[in-house]
């Protein structure tokens, strides 16, 4: 029973990290209509930055903050390439973000090499109802809760957040009232970078990260985001937690080598069921 609880809590921590990646995808997709393939890259950039800065002797907190900001800048640059040019279709933008992800490989290998890197996190563990859980996992869960609350406040209560929602809700009307939709798209990309970066600095102490970790991260994030049809943050969070727990349980009970297949299989099933429910997703491929 306590093993089950341990797996559950660990799984929630893993799910929280996925949720942060996925929320970045959702923010960007809502405002720009683009699925950002480079979302996992932001996490990798932040994780590698944090490990370097900590290695240089910078204190905790400052290192992670700088790393997350670096990821936000990466997000902004990705946005410039993907939606900066007027008339780029969402599918072209997807291919551009794919290109950005590959370009990041080159930059990351030059800066950090091609071996996985780790970073120290919160040491120690606590015992909850007979289950041992690492402090770092608790930190991940806490930070994710705060991040989602902050996102809800930002989009629900602030003028800027409402302007971003307005761009998602009716881009033409946003232009009518004078909102620069392109600039809002860039802001969404920066915010996506921030969220991805947050995931990166939290994950790196749990499992080492290397330049090509982005594929697993983005696929998991996308899988969670499709639960919420790429637009609904709360269902995305639920999807991410489900994925995290399912994967951790699978690993815990001896199916560790099939973790990825479980996530991917779930994603495929959800997508196909959703497509069956709405046969005409209003997306023309041109």
């Amino acid at each position: 029973m306590s093993a089950f609880l341990t797996y559950l809590l660990n799984g929630l921590a893993v799910g929280c990290a996925i949720a942060l990646i996925a929320s970045g995808l959702v923010v960007i997709h809502r405002v720009t209509g683009v699925v950002n393939f480079a979302q996992g890259t932001f996490a990798v950039v932040a994780g590698l930055c944090a490990s370097s800065l900590l290695g240089l002797g910078l204190p905790h907190g400052a290192s992670e903050l700088a790393a997350v900001l670096a990821a936000a800048v990466a997000g902004l640059l990705t946005g410039l390439a993907a939606v900066g040019r007027p008339g780029t279709t969402p599918l072209s933008s997807l291919i551009v973000t794919l290109g950005v992800g590959v370009l990041a490989y080159a930059v990351e290998i030059v800066l950090w090499g091609d071996q996985p890197r780790s970073a120290p996190g919160l040491a120690g563990s606590v015992t909850v109802a007979g289950a041992r859980i690492q402090t770092q996992h608790l930190l991940v869960i806490a930070v994710t809760a705060v991040a989602f609350a902050a996102l809800a406040l930002f989009f629900g209560r602030t003028y800027l957040g409402k302007a971003l929602t307005a761009c998602a809700s009716n881009p033409y009307a946003a232009r009518v009232v004078g909102i620069d939709v392109r600039r809002m798209g860039l802001l969404a990309f920066a915010l996506g970078g921030l969220l991805g970066g947050l995931a990166g600095v939290l994950v790196t102490p749990m499992r080492p990260i290397s330049f090509d970790s982005d594929v697993t991260l983005i696929v998991n994030g996308f899988a969670a985001a499709v639960f919420g049809a790429l637009t609904r943050p709360v269902i995305t969070l639920a999807g991410a937690l489900l994925l995290g727990v399912a994967e951790t349980m699978a690993a815990g009970y001896g199916y560790g080598s099939h973790q990825l297949e479980i996530a991917l299989g779930l994603m495929l099933v959800v997508m196909i069921v959703q497509a069956g429910r709405r046969p005409a997703i209003s997306q023309e491929p041109t």
Partner: peptide
């Protein structure tokens, strides 16, 4: 604009507030 073109997901108060963007 033709066809109203409101922000359907936002409240009336928010729609008005965004009208003051400029």
């Amino acid at each position: 604009p033709e066809g109203r073109q409101l922000f359907p997901d936002l409240s009336v108060a928010d729609n008005l507030a965004l009208g003051g963007w400029r």
